[in-house]
């Protein structure tokens, strides 16, 4: 349980594990590692926005290292981890969210080509 907001967290998502953390640990402790965790979270939000922009969705950082995902109609859902992000993104987008979808692959490839040429 989060000591600040009282939210019950039953599972740490595998993507939230940090370098140096005990593999068997089932708790997240604040302090020094919290800064790293928050930085990683912001970085993940940036990556998510590049992917979800294709579906007309936007993700924002939300207190407690959560994700606020919104569509262009103003619908918003709060998610605690990446698994929830994909579930809610699919609900909001009204279409399957799949990294092997050829339309998404073509879209991201074009962005990759542009960034590659710029770099």
């Amino acid at each position: 349980m989060c000591v600040l907001c009282g939210e019950l967290i039953t599972q740490i998502h595998w993507t939230d594990k940090l370098s140096g953390e005990d593999e068997q640990s089932t708790t997240i402790v604040g302090g020094a590692s919290q800064r790293t965790r928050t930085r990683d979270h912001h970085h993940r939000v940036k990556i998510l926005n590049e992917v979800l922009e294709f579906y007309g969705l936007n993700v924002r950082y939300w207190a407690g290292n959560r994700y606020m995902i919104s569509d262009r109609k103003g619908n918003s859902v709060l998610c605690t981890n990446l698994s929830e992000v994909w579930t809610e993104a699919q609900n909001l987008a009204g279409q399957p969210v799949d990294p092997t979808d050829s339309r998404l692959v073509n879209h991201l490839s074009l962005i990759g080509d542009v960034k590659g040429n710029m770099g």
Partner: peptide
């Protein structure tokens, strides 16, 4: 590779497939 980006891709793949 970027661990965060891999986590995004992998979690999306596992969600979909």
């Amino acid at each position: 590779i970027d661990w965060s980006a891999f986590g995004v891709w992998m979690s999306m793949l596992l969600f979909a497939r």
